[in-house]
Design a protein around this nucleic acid. Structure first.
Length: 542
RNA sequence: GAGCUCGUAGCUCAGUAGGUAGAGCAACGCCCUUUUAAGGCGUGGGUCCUGGGUUCGAGCCCCAGCGAGCUCACCA
């Protein structure tokens, strides 16, 4: 518990102060304190009152709070109490609280919790202050608080000791208040539209519904290996089969992958499904949802993220193919046309053309053929130009999109910052989505991006059990050829579809990332109360 | 997993050229009855992240490790 001799001796000193406090007739750890107002209440009610009003109509209040500043001046003194995320000053003078009361004041330390009973007034400098008539000791801080002006600034300590961060950095507290408001607004939005909130298993025998590596665990009594879920998707659609036409779930997903400013191994996901709707309906709903939540949380759809103003009420939509063409790097030519990306045949014809016109001596990044191989290689592993034809063209197109629009290699940093919906995805990268009626190589799917990262993924759900079985088999083949994030087979899910899933559209939204946008937080760790950290004592081996 | 940067008192940070470690806040003692990053006088407090190495001498230079931040990769 102690980091140093300094802390140990401080702790011992505070213990002896507690004994002195008990001698004054106060309990060291009392059980309650009947405050008349919270500090935010007091500020809301009397924050604007003038000194004369407070004198004429004396307001008796009793508040509790933690001492964040204390300034003794001989036979009087001030302290600043903090509670409910706000602060209020108290004024304690010997002739008002008596010998015992003032003796208690002198035994107080930064961080202590106290109750203050008295009446409100304004000091010479105009600060709203409680003129204390009775002090009540509530609990002692046995350890030293961080520096009062800078607060706790060490990022690592802020995450590891969030309990200190929360009361020393009120901006940190505000982020989590907004987090709660966000969750409330999301629920309200769906409740108002007749969606039922449900909870599906977090421990699953088949970790499906997304492409990610799972955590494994074990149930002893049943002697059964289980995975922590990577997505609730397949269970939610089983519920739609069961006749729950509109469902949503907000809860944790677990993915056994790296951490970054945008990834925490456990993160909060919103997923919702709506029968008789398709992905176009969800595009509209998404735009409405994000604007609604922004209004509820911030009172405006404008948010500032990384120095850029983003309007969460203004959206653009474009197809994946349009996005590739729009953001194709100028120095790579020839550039593809919409037609070149339309089908496998057209795409590989374009690819062959790129090889044919390739000039020796031109930099790799400016050679379309090599650029394609490089871009695709980023997705499937390093790739020689000759091998590109072995990759399903849909994967190639998806890889191009990621290289050109998402990756920072070619992205001039202004892509996908303002709210953008990218729709029409290749079938091979979307094992659970429904094909476009007249174009079975493409599926009815969209993702949306804000602030430079992906926030959500949605599609018209594939509800043909025969096709679904086939897609799972395609995935198994990719898995066999080394893609360990390819989807697993879920027989029971196919059986559920066989009972009949109505036409349905579904969507998943990364809630932590949404909160990052709404609070201007650059790291996901700033919106998660206790982000995962390496064990400090033992140290990791990798 | 890779690259870059960082780790000095409880906290926030300095630390010159390699020459026996500093400030402010916090703590302790004293003074002070409208202060607010209160003020004044005085005192105590350090495995300089860890382990090696170079050197007469290392907080500083070199190597390895641990932890963190950022960027990239993977994903939402």
């Amino acid at each position: 518990m102690f980091d140093s001799e300094f802390e140990r001796s401080l702790f011992d000193l505070r213990k002896s102060k507690l004994v002195e406090i008990e001698k004054l007739g106060q309990a060291a750890y009392p059980n309650q304190f009947p405050a008349s107002h919270s500090i935010p209440d007091v500020r809301a009610k009397w924050g604007q009152s003038q000194a004369e009003d407070l004198e004429a109509n004396r307001a008796a209040v009793s508040v509790a709070g933690r001492i964040m500043a204390i300034r003794a001046q001989g036979k009087a003194g001030f302290a600043t109490l903090q509670q409910g995320g706000e602060r209020l000053q108290i004024y304690v003078r010997l002739d008002a609280v008596g010998e015992q009361g003032f003796a208690l004041y002198k035994l107080l330390d930064l961080g202590d919790h106290i109750g203050a009973t008295g009446y409100l007034f304004r000091t010479r400098t105009g600060e709203l202050t409680i003129h204390v008539e009775r002090l009540t000791f509530l609990a002692k801080a046995m350890l030293a608080l961080p520096e009062k002006f800078h607060g706790l600034a060490d990022v690592e300590l802020r995450y590891r000791q969030r309990y200190v961060d929360l009361f020393t950095n009120l901006e940190a507290r505000e982020v989590f208040v907004k987090r709660a408001k966000t969750l409330k607004a999301l629920r309200q939005f769906f409740d108002d539209r007749g969606y039922l909130e449900v909870e599906t298993p977090m421990m699953q025998q088949v970790a499906g519904g997304a492409a990610a590596r799972p955590f494994t665990t074990h149930h002893n009594a049943l002697d059964m290996d289980l995975f922590l879920r990577i997505a609730p998707e397949l269970y939610l659609k089983r519920l739609v089969v069961g006749g729950l036409d509109r469902v949503y779930e907000i809860n944790r997903n677990f993915r056994n992958e790296g951490v970054s400013t945008q990834h925490n191994p456990e993160f909060t996901m919103l997923e919702f499904y709506q029968a008789y709707a398709n992905y176009h309906d969800l595009m509209d709903l998404t735009e409405e949802l994000i604007a609604f939540v922004a209004q509820e949380v911030n009172g405006t759809t404008i948010t500032n993220f990384g120095g850029v103003e983003i309007d969460l009420g203004k959206w653009t939509r474009l197809t994946m193919r349009e996005a590739i063409i729009k953001w194709w790097p100028a120095f790579v030519h020839p550039a593809p046309t919409l037609g070149d990306l339309k089908s496998s045949e057209h795409f590989f014809a374009f690819f062959d053309h790129c090889i044919a016109v390739a000039k020796p001596g031109v930099r790799t990044s400016e050679q379309p053929a090599l650029f394609l191989a490089y871009a695709i290689g980023k997705m499937v592993g390093p790739l020689h130009v000759d091998k590109v034809r072995e990759i399903p063209w849909g994967k190639c197109v998806n890889a191009l999109f990621e290289a050109v629009a998402e990756s920072s290699d070619y992205n001039p940093a202004d892509h996908l910052i303002q709210p953008t919906i990218v729709h029409e995805y290749p079938r091979v990268v979307s094992p659970l989505s429904k094909q476009k009626p007249n174009d079975p190589d493409w599926v009815e799917r969209f993702e949306f991006y804000i602030g430079g990262f992906e926030l959500g993924n949605a599609f018209s759900e594939l509800n043909d059990p025969v096709e679904q079985q086939k897609r799972f088999e395609e995935q198994l083949a990719q898995r066999a050829s080394g893609d360990d994030e390819a989807h697993q087979m879920d027989e029971d899910y196919v059986r559920a579809l066989a009972y009949g899933l109505p036409p349905t559209a579904g969507e998943g939204i990364g809630v932590d990332r949404l909160i990052m946008l709404l609070t201007g937080s650059k790291s996901i760790r700033d919106v998660i109360l206790f982000p995962l950290m390496r064990n400090r004592e033992q140290g990791g081996s990798d």
